[in-house]
Amino acid sequence: MIEVAGVAKSFTVWNHGGAVIPVMRDACLTVRPGECVALTGASGSGKSTLMRMIWGNYRIDAGSVRVAGVEVAGAEPRTVIRLRRETMGYVSQFLRVVPRVPTLRVVAEPLLTLGVAPQTAEARAAGMLAAVNIPERLWALSPTTFSGGEQQRVNIARGFVHPWPVLLLDEPTASLDGANREAVLRLIEGAKARGAAILGIFHDEGARARVCDRAVDVRAFAPPAAA
């Protein structure tokens, strides 16, 4: 479902005289349906960068990124927009929302965009919020006022509210304790069981060992200069 082949990426920083910083070369990986693959490597080695190239918010200089058979690299915006709407979910480390929009609506929004009826969408959103232990009295409030851990769980509820065939998870269990971590790991196991292809970044080694089938060390993709 995810096929990354021969991908290279560098950043050009114009306010430093156009310095070119190579960050990746010849990156390759495959994630099959029902499989959870971990990206590993030290902080700064390019795990999130690789994930963003699959999500499509980072461009690539060479190679190919295919999601469900669709080429993401160099694709027209509408191709990627459709892929994100229908096929690929992403739990980033940041929750970006319109201020003052209730949490329930924030979680329901991907379903509304897919054309699901508002009542159905909100019922499913409510189920997801309950699954990640967000108390019902918070559902009518904007998540911008929530704690870091609560925001993270709202982000996860939103990322699992639709059964996307592909999931990208950037530190889904970071800043979560006991019961909440367990709730998130169960969601990941559930997504695997229904056949989702999952690519994840987990600093939490216990979590990684439990849900991931194998790991890909991104240090193997470091460009020679930075290696």
């Binding site: 950043f11 114009w14 306010n15 499509g56 980072y58 915006p77």
Partner: peptide, 21 residues
């Protein structure tokens, strides 16, 4: 030009980089 998050997260043109930063 491009996807909104692509242009804002990975700006390529000097002017866009200045704008975002």
């Amino acid at each position: 030009s491009g996807l909104t998050d692509q242009v804002l997260d990975d700006p390529a043109h000097p002017y866009t980089q200045l704008l975002v930063s």
